[in-house]
Design a protein around this nucleic acid. Structure first.
Lengths: 218, 218
DNA sequence: TAGATTGTTAATCGATTAACAATC
DNA sequence: TAGATTGTTAATCGATTAACAATC
């Protein structure tokens, strides 16, 4: 299976496919055609078939796609059958909300440790986890070997902290700092989330749009 | 000023320009060339000049761009000189985190009301605001005329609630529901944020990447 | 078999990059 | 004036859409 390099545009659509296929599944759909899925998602059937064909042949002529089967294939492509161990740095408002709100295990991760520098927070419980002091990170990583980290720490500390974490073995960052994290290391992945930028885009839309495009996000 | 329709790709880059220009300003930069800015942002100078020229001529040949001036222009384009009144629905973990964490006034909004259905939460304080009961939304809107709403409510309620809010005058949604909100109304803007999709993308990267692209998000 | 729908190739469209004359 | 850098046009690249033969 799989053509060599998958474009970013395709990759960004995969989680959305996965989400829609899960919904279809819960609604009792057994099969779906690219045309029908396109309608539901606001895409074209061509695009959907092109996207899937980056990875293999998941459909059947004259029939379409098996919903559960396709969902499984896309899940595998996304690595959702793995549970990459992940830690959270920064248990402030946002960090706590993410820890409580995100379904890590269905996104390919397992949250195994939470750290904060604030002594008022250290020791408190978030779900099943107890917040640890930042000074414990290194030994924790040595023992538990987390591969991914969520950064919910102040902007100023982000870059320095990221470098440290890389030296402890972290290979993926989900970065909520107001800072575009760019790591030199070729084998380290970064997903920068800029909630502020997202809201700013909405400001543009609300101040401009008379005709708002009904199309999907980016 | 301004060519007719601005492409989505350009619009999504504007908040990032604004952010970088703010940083440059705080670091004492007075002028910057497209080449230098491109280097800092990981773009090409051509693209930057093309982007800006969608809106007008902000630079000066042989000199470059005045940092403060350019930041001001982009801020105006983004509507950051306005303070669109905004309400928040759902004061759970995520809602509270956003209320506390986001600098609304520097993003073109003003958070003026928070609502929840949970009686244990209603009446509690978040920053300067007291959480109100959802039943009060309509009268609140009649009096205070908010234009935008953040949705941090359960997925099932999102679509129904959005329709109601539109009838109360809401024209923009920042949607954190696990649901692609699509409203029929042409003059209503929606910014769907899917934190789960973002994390899923990181799962793909971490399970695939040996060579991770050092390029910027999307 | 006939109808449906895929996988895939070719055509189109849009976005990015390169180049350069204009001009500060 | 000479050097720098813009604004803008032209060239390239990539992504989306259309079309259709293959086949279930």
């Amino acid at each position: 299976m799989s053509k060599n390099v998958i474009s970013n545009s395709v990759i960004r659509r995969l989680p959305r496919y996965y989400r829609f296929l899960g919904d279809l599944e819960s609604n009792g759909y057994v099969r779906i055609s690219s045309r029908e899925l396109a309608e539901k998602m606001g895409l074209t059937a061509s695009q959907i078939r092109q996207d899937f064909n980056c990875f293999g042949e998941f459909g059947q002529q004259g029939y379409g796609y098996n919903v559960t089967g396709l969902k499984g294939e896309i899940g595998k492509i996304l690595g959702l059958d793995k549970k990459t161990p992940m830690i959270l740095l920064g248990a402030g408002n946002l960090g706590r909300a993410l820890a409580a709100h995100i379904d890590f295990r269905n996104r390919g991760f397992d949250l195994i440790g939470i750290f904060d520098a604030n002594h008022n927070i250290v020791g408190s419980k978030i779900g099943e986890l107890t917040v640890m002091d930042v000074s414990e990170i290194e030994s924790f990583c040595t023992v538990n070997k987390p591969i991914a980290a969520i950064l919910c720490i102040p902007r100023e500390e982000a870059e320095k902290e990221a470098e440290k974490l890389i030296s402890y073995g972290i290979r993926a960052f989900w970065n909520f700092t107001h800072f575009d994290l760019r790591v030199g290391h070729k084998d380290v992945s970064v997903e920068n989330v800029h909630l502020g930028d997202s809201l700013t885009t909405l400001s543009y839309a609300v101040n401009t749009a008379v005709y708002n495009d009904s199309s999907e996000d980016e």
